[in-house]
Design a protein around this nucleic acid. Structure first.
Lengths: 159, 159
DNA sequence: TCCAATCTTGACAAAAAAGTAACGATTTGA
DNA sequence: TCAAATCGTTACTTTTTTGTCAAGATTGGA
């Protein structure tokens, strides 16, 4: 289970925009520089994010990108859903082996686990906004762990 | 964030073995048939799982694969760690863009989120054994949701 | 003994994901 | 008006992941 390049870099670009002062924007070369990626790659990512409605852009000499909504109103689950291309939804039809459909179609013992995991992740991400992950590592870490129940400790089992 | 093919099929093969009666085993062609994958692919997966110590094998006529430990003692987090090739551990060095190391090395605002997500998933998987996911979809689903706190509901926020 | 069934292993091929390039469209401002 | 700076879009290349193949090694049984 891992984060794709598109999710990683796409999110990082959005965080850069989230950190701007109101009214400011960033050009592709600026975003590329800030994230250590190529301008072409930044361009593709921003195209995706623009298409998905997270950012707006203006062209021409003073052009650039900026968030379409306040950073505090954009939750990470929405972003990952787009950048990750709805991984859960396509799961069963992605893993059909050499057949046309999964052999476990109809009754699958591991599907609840896969779906459940995605729900857990979705739940966690839905509690975090872009605004909350602008900052230093320690401040973001503190924020993350302060969210009640986001990573609960297992209570000792009664025997 | 998604499950890789290796994780998916590898886990499915293990579940097949977990469902066997004690003393029984499955050959590669049998596993391949049961999971709808090619024998060659099953071979590679079982090789990985054998190397990692999850299964044992015997060669020759009457050979096959069986679990190296009781299904009730094998937790899903161990399995995913091997099949997913330690995704978290390699995260930062995987996403360095066009540079040799990540621009956010040292202080990264999104690392706590990535690491935290992986912890949440790890935590959930560590509470489930192979034995628990042998069965029908509804029984496994019930098992999953009966684990206290595995997918907690967000409490309404006080305003 | 020797054949058939099985696992083992590394090299290779195909598919998918990631990243790049090229060219077009829009805007600003001289 | 037009050149420079910018975004927009699609096609292409590279890299990674996935899957296949082929030859070898081991075992059981006739």
């Amino acid at each position: 289970m891992k984060i794709s390049a598109q999710e990683e870099y796409g999110l990082r670009c959005l965080v850069q925009l989230a950190g701007l002062r109101p009214g400011d924007s960033l050009t592709l070369p600026q975003i590329a520089e800030l994230e250590g990626i190529s301008t072409a790659n930044a361009g593709k990512l921003m195209w995706l994010l623009n298409k998905a409605g997270f950012v707006l852009s203006t062209r021409g000499t003073k052009g650039g990108y900026f968030l379409a909504r306040p950073a505090g109103e954009i939750h990470l689950n929405e972003i990952i859903k787009v950048l990750g291309e709805e991984a859960v939804a396509k799961h069963c039809e992605s893993y059909t082996g050499v057949l046309d459909s999964c052999v476990h179609k109809g009754d699958c013992g591991i599907r609840p686990v896969i779906v459940g995991l995605h729900e857990i992740v979705e739940n966690a991400l839905s509690q975090i906004t872009l605004a909350q992950i602008v900052g230093t590592e320690s401040s973001v870490d503190a924020m993350f762990h302060s969210i009640k129940g986001i990573n609960r400790v297992i209570e000792p089992q009664r025997v």
